[in-house]
Every structure is written in C-alpha cells, then in structure tokens.
C-alpha cells in the first residue's frame, strides 16, 4: 500500500517540475532575438533604424556580421558621425566595452548600412549601437540615437561518441570480471592457505 503512495508522490513531484519547466521555457522563447527600442526624442529625423545579425543563433567560434543601418530623413547631408558598439560578454554582469567605432557620413534623405564582423563566443550577448554627432548644427539640439539587440550564441558541441561507449565497456568489463574473479581467486594457493 505504501508503495502506491510512493508512486503517487513521485508522479506529482515529477509533474510539478515538468509543468514549471515547460512554462518557464516556452514563455522565455530562448531562440528569439530580442530587440529593444530606445525611444528617441527626435528633434531631427536622423538615427539608427536597424541592428541585425547575419545569423539568428550562431555557434561559438563562428563569424557573425552585425548590420547597423543609419537613416537620414532630413534634407541636409550629415557630416561625420561616430558609431560605437557596446558588447556584453558576460550575461550576469553586463560588462560593457567598446567593440568598434567608425566615423560615417550619410547623405540627405538616404540610409546607409554598416557592417562589423565579430567572432562569436558562447552565451548571451547584448549589442548596443550608439550614434552621436561630432559636428555642431546651428540652433539645433541633437540627441543620441541608440538601438540594442540580444544575440544568443550556442557553445561548441562538446564530447564525442567514443568516450561514453568506452565508459560503458569499462563498466560492463569490470562487472563481467567480477563474475569470473571468484573462480580464479579460489585457485590461488596462497589465498586457499590463508582461508584455511
């Protein structure tokens, strides 16, 4: 009877764990690239319109191209802009650092896409592209424009098929040897004498 209770407890505990994991995992949708829009208090219609990656979920060690599109909807040419990437390497600590920067020029009523290459390391990475102007436009206030995106990089596959097979062979080999061992030990004269 007590066995039955045991089974019920096992199943309930298992189901609870299963359901919580399912909820967490499917809600989180780990494979999706998350885009975060930072609202621009635009005074003039210039800014970063897009931040994308060449692969949605690259493997560790792969080269990933990061595309940053800057648009200029104003009727004047923008002179030199500075572009900065921020990269998060550690998921927990968000240690930002300057990844790359570039001075750019974007013509009136046009957009331009810039490419940066990055060798992927495993984990979650947050990329932020920040654009600011070095030129001073008369009587105009120009806010910074930024855009962030998270990229998830799978680690390199680990292990091989041979080692676990070898380990299974070791286990069964030793267990098999244990079956045979008494027949040998029984015939060792020293052990026979010791037992007498």
């Amino acid at each position: 009877m007590r066995c039955k209770y045991y089974f019920v407890v096992l199943i309930v505990v298992g189901m609870m764990m299963l359901s919580s994991t399912l909820l967490c995992s499917f809600q989180a949708e780990p494979s999706k690239m998350i885009e975060q829009d930072v609202p621009d208090e635009e005074v003039i219609d210039v800014g970063i319109s897009n931040l994308t990656f060449s692969k949605e979920k690259p493997r560790e060690g792969e080269n990933v191209t990061i595309f940053v599109t800057v648009m200029n909807n104003e009727s004047m040419d923008l002179g030199e802009l500075t572009f900065i990437d921020k990269v998060n390497i550690t998921l927990m600590h968000f240690e930002d650092f300057l990844f790359a920067w570039e001075n750019i020029t974007v013509g009136a009523n046009s957009s331009k896409t810039f490419e940066f290459t990055w060798q992927a390391t495993s984990g979650m990475h947050s990329f932020t592209a920040v654009m600011f102007f070095e030129i001073q436009l008369l009587n105009m206030s120009l806010p910074w424009s930024s855009r962030s995106a998270i990229l998830e990089v799978d680690p390199e596959p680990i292990g091989n098929l041979y080692f676990p097979v070898a380990m299974l062979l070791v286990v069964f080999g030793i267990v098999g040897a244990a079956i045979l061992a008494p027949a040998f030990f029984e015939r060792i004269p020293y052990l026979q004498q010791k037992r007498r």
Binding site: C24, G123, M124, E152, V153, E156, I158
Partner: peptide, 20 residues
Amino acid sequence: GLITDVFAVTMTIGGGPGGQ
C-alpha cells in the same frame, strides 16, 4: 548535466537577468 549539455544549447530556463 552532460546529458543535455552535449547539445551545446544555451537554455534560458530559470529566469533571471540573461536567463541562465
């Protein structure tokens, strides 16, 4: 943990900043 680690997939189970 190796049973699932061999797939080398970053899981976001468990919540928290960054998920892992």
